[in-house]
Design a protein around this nucleic acid. Structure first.
Lengths: 198, 198
DNA sequence: ACTTCATTGCAACTCCGAGTTGCGTTATGC
DNA sequence: GCATAACGCAACTCGGAGTTGCAATGAAGT
């Protein structure tokens, strides 16, 4: 088994350059006008080289997007749920304002949404982030700040939902004001016991 | 000016057939694999005819989608906010389960999201539905069921957000259970005064 | 029924991006 | 330095977006 691709060396450089170019092209042109040739040129690489490493256009996009999804979500622990949730919400909102965030957004929610791999990746990333943010809620419940029986996932979904709405549908600016509003709503619903397990 | 197209006659039939075929193709193939030829064949019409009526592929999609967006949202008035909000949420959730709803979803939120006309249409439809559902909230405030100063738009956004989240991101089933959950959350947040104007 | 004009059907284009192939060239590891 | 894997390059095939000129057909008005 000497055919394994080296992690470093020329191949890694090409791989990184093509990934960056793919995301950049997605931002600039969108999914529909996305062309492999343009990616290759932007990466300073020939089209054939791209096709040697990736099966087709879809694989390239899936791979490039997946690569940039290993970004970790913070686990704020300020001592109060309110501040923790605000931090989570602001972090989520901010992640969509970066160029890479825009590219991932374009690929995952607009262009390649019909691809099963993309759909699954979208679900996986969301649930992973959810799972990693749950301690914020469980700690708050343990502290007695939130009703016992509060479902962490439901609270965090309520938080995220308000941000995704403006991001994907209304087109309103996704800023700290929105993040704070989303945190306030989720917190109020939780306090009222509307986010229980049953 | 005798060149005005007649509203009825042969032209109207072709137009309707092509519109239906466009939505059907969007459902079946998705935006990326959408081809004008396939639409023409499904509509029992020649490709040239399509291009004579619509400038290009994008115009065809925009037009077909816009045609089907004149669907009216109900204005439930049962006497209690709880039941009214549940009815609104269920109506929204149900609108995405129909074939036409699926097609519009595919076009507006996945494929053609980058087109300014589609983006604007999406915003317009959402705000129109919001505006037409506001009486439900204002009546509830007048009845004293909700705190004075409750922002109708904010409440309805909270309601819709939870449904769109599962629809577009988690991929969980969009059914009556989800609709009821969304209504419950929005109502709790409103009762807590988290959806005020200021 | 006859004429007329717009509309549609049809075939043969051009253009462009996806994806492939064969071969020459360059870099990397040993 | 030399073998080998990876890259550059040009020339393909294939399919869908649009276009064009002409013939056929539909829906009027008389």
């Amino acid at each position: 088994m000497k055919s394994d691709r080296p992690v470093v060396g020329r191949g890694a450089k090409v791989r990184a350059a093509v990934h960056a170019a793919t995301l950049a092209e997605l931002v600039d042109k969108g999914y529909a006008a996305f062309s492999v040739d343009a990616v290759a040129q932007r990466a300073g690489v020939h089209k054939t080289t791209v096709y040697r490493r990736w099966k087709d256009r879809e694989s390239l996009i899936v791979d490039a997007v997946a690569e940039h999804m290993a970004m970790d979500i913070p686990d704020p622990d300020t001592g109060t749920v309110e501040a923790d949730l605000r931090a989570l919400a602001r972090s989520l909102a901010h992640s969509f304002t970066t160029p890479a965030g825009q590219a991932i957004l374009a690929a995952m929610f607009t262009g390649a949404a019909h691809l099963p791999e993309i759909a699954e990746a979208r679900r996986h990333v969301f649930h992973d982030r959810l799972r990693r943010a749950e301690p914020v809620v469980t700690r708050a419940v343990a502290r007695g700040e939130l009703p016992a029986g509060t479902d962490p996932a439901e609270l965090l979904k309520t938080l995220a939902a308000r941000i995704y709405l403006d991001l994907l549908i209304t087109g309103d600016p996704v800023d700290e004001a929105l993040a704070d509003k989303a945190a306030r709503i989720a917190l109020a619903a939780a306090h009222a016991g509307a986010l229980g397990h049953a």
